[in-house]
Amino acid sequence: MSTPAQQAARRLRIVAGLVRGRAYNPLPYVTEDLSALFMDAATAVETCTVDPGGTVPQAALNSLQAALDMITQHDFHIPAAIAEYAIAPMTGYLPEMEPLGAACPLCVRQAAYFQARRAALIEAGYLDSGEDEVLRAALQGVLVLHYRYGHLTAPAAENDNRPCDCRTSPADVTTC
């Protein structure tokens, strides 16, 4: 049986691999830098002393904060929530999908679909799998679900990937 720190380090390494394979940036070295930050966090979790409460080591948190800063500065097609899934074995927290609010019926249906898929991945225990391929697929699944869900919650003016023809913010739209 592995410890929460070992589980988190394993997830962080898998996320680093997903970043290398899925993240997009016109400058490849920027994607590699992002991946390296997740690897640094994994190394910090493995090598730093973890207190009995299981808190995430500060060195790992610093690396994750730098990764989150990069994610918010550039559109890597990687949601920031993936970092929380990676360290969930240590924190006991899995990120939720923000409520969609009023939106067109198609957006509401898609949001419900994404939320149901996320719940199914979690309830099936795939994020706790001992098999690397299963865990990789589960983390990739939540990565894609959160990224796509983020397009539904983003203001329409900033978002050309909405599944409908809404031209106002989701909070102002009741129908398409």
Results as ranks from 00 to 15, higher is better:
T3H: 09
A8W: 09
A9F: 14
R10K: 13
L12V: 09
R13G: 00
I14G: 00
I14S: 00
G17P: 03
V19Q: 01
P26Q: 09
L27I: 13
P28E: 06
T31R: 10
E32Q: 10
A36Q: 13
L37N: 00
F38K: 01
F38E: 01
M39L: 12
M39K: 04
A41I: 04
A42C: 12
T47I: 01
C48N: 12
T49N: 13
V50A: 04
A59G: 03
L64K: 01
Q65S: 07
Q73I: 13
H74E: 10
F76M: 15
H77S: 13
I78Q: 01
I78W: 04
A80W: 12
A81L: 08
A81P: 04
A88Q: 07
A88Y: 06
L94G: 02
E96T: 10
E96F: 06
E96G: 09
P99K: 01
P99N: 09
C104Q: 00
P105E: 09
V108P: 03
R109I: 06
Q110P: 04
Q115R: 15
Q115L: 06
R118P: 06
E123G: 08
E123D: 14
E123S: 15
A124T: 13
Y126R: 15
S129C: 05
S129P: 13
E131K: 15
D132Y: 03
E133H: 10
L135K: 01
A137K: 05
A138E: 00
A138H: 00
G141P: 05
L143H: 05
H146W: 08
Y147A: 11
R148V: 03
G150D: 06
T153F: 03
A154G: 05
A157W: 06
N159P: 02
D160F: 15
R162P: 12
T168M: 07
P170Y: 11
D172K: 11
V173A: 12
T174Y: 09
